[in-house]
Amino acid sequence: MIRFEQVTKRYADGTTAVDGLSFEVAEGELVTLVGPSGCGKTTTMKMVNRLIEPTEGRILLGGEDISAIDPVRLRRRIGYVIQQVGLFPHRTVLDNTAAVPHLLGAPRARARARAAELLDLVGLDPKKYGDRYPEQLSGGQRQRVGVARALAADPPVLLMDEPFGAVDPVVRERLQSEFLKLQSQVRKTVLLVTHDLEEAVRLGDRIAVYGQGTIEQFDTPARVLGAPATPYVAEFVGSDRGLKRLSVTPVDSAALEKAPVLRPGGTPPDAPWSVVLDADGRPEGWVSADEPGRTRPAPEPVPLGASLREALAALLQHDTGWLPVTDPADGGRFAGVLTPAGVHRALRASTKATEATEATEATEATEANEETAVSSR
């Protein structure tokens, strides 16, 4: 969908903002650009909608060279979300959201109907918030309106520049979660700029780690954390990258342990404790062998596929030493329990999988080089 071919941006004073960038963002993929201030990530993003023109190289959008597209027409095909949101203060939330469809020629009624749909999609009831003005919203609410407005014309590409940087950490995490849910529904091709590695890891399908004007590594979050390509990347992701891997490693059935269960009308098992299931096989509590008639509340279950980070956080909130895990594909039925040992086991398995992939790719590269050498003789 987006392709950079040896793209360089050099300014008149000789400063090179980005140098020889070549990478591709697949359709429906969310790629995060992460790095220190002044490394060129925002310049990279702004070249996609021609707010900044490259000095050398080509940028293709859907196979079309953007230099041949009228900038205004190009920008109307691309959603743009910035940290300051940039809402029109004199317009209502509904009219802010409807602005782009209206500019594109949609009748006012249709544009406002589309805006109402999108406000509802980002969690803002249009009946409650549609007639409010930006100053009457919280920072997080304004940010949601900014996302809704960017999606209003149904653009195939979404550019996001530090979109959650202006809100407090609690709201920021909630907005990230809501955006991931939204992205799972709309599947836009997204370039998201951030200086926060944890945000990049949590949101990105792939991450571009910037050095000074160049990309040091372009890979999945698990690979960036588990197999840094250069000493610079290793230093950037930090010595605690093993902990950061918790965010990108899912809870799977191999990490779980079996637990004794007590079903409705059943006999308590001969065990120190057991998980109490309801008639549908979902966990609703646990009992101790010392007090078999007293059902105690169990920790809130986590589903298979949740991140180990979420699971570990839940484990640390309770003193049971285990966490019930459910299977969404099986109607939310009980799948087993996760313990700290299971978290460690899953993390080690993820690390070994990354190392195995690295070894396979190295072997394939060696074989390819040998074949090339033979064919050139």
Rank of each mutant, 00 (worst) to 15 (best):
V233T: 06
R76G: 03
E27Q: 14
R223P: 00
I69M: 14
P283H: 10
K352G: 00
P71T: 09
Y232I: 10
Y232T: 09
T44P: 08
G285H: 01
I69V: 15
P221H: 01
T8W: 04
Y210N: 10
A329C: 06
L203K: 09
D219Q: 08
I207H: 00
Y129W: 07
A271M: 02
W286A: 09
G40C: 02
K244I: 00
E367R: 03
I59Y: 04
V167A: 03
F23K: 01
L308H: 05
T42E: 10
T194I: 06
D278T: 07
K352C: 00
V261I: 14
P134F: 00
L225W: 00
T55W: 07
A298M: 04
D125M: 05
L323A: 05
S247P: 00
A26R: 15
L315E: 03
T194P: 04
V248K: 00
R132C: 07
G213R: 02
E371A: 15
P264A: 05
A362K: 12
L74N: 05
P268M: 07
R50L: 10
V72F: 11
L33C: 08
V287N: 00
M45A: 15
H90F: 03
E216L: 04
K128G: 07
G28I: 00
G226N: 02
V170G: 14
Q141L: 08
G342A: 06
G146D: 02
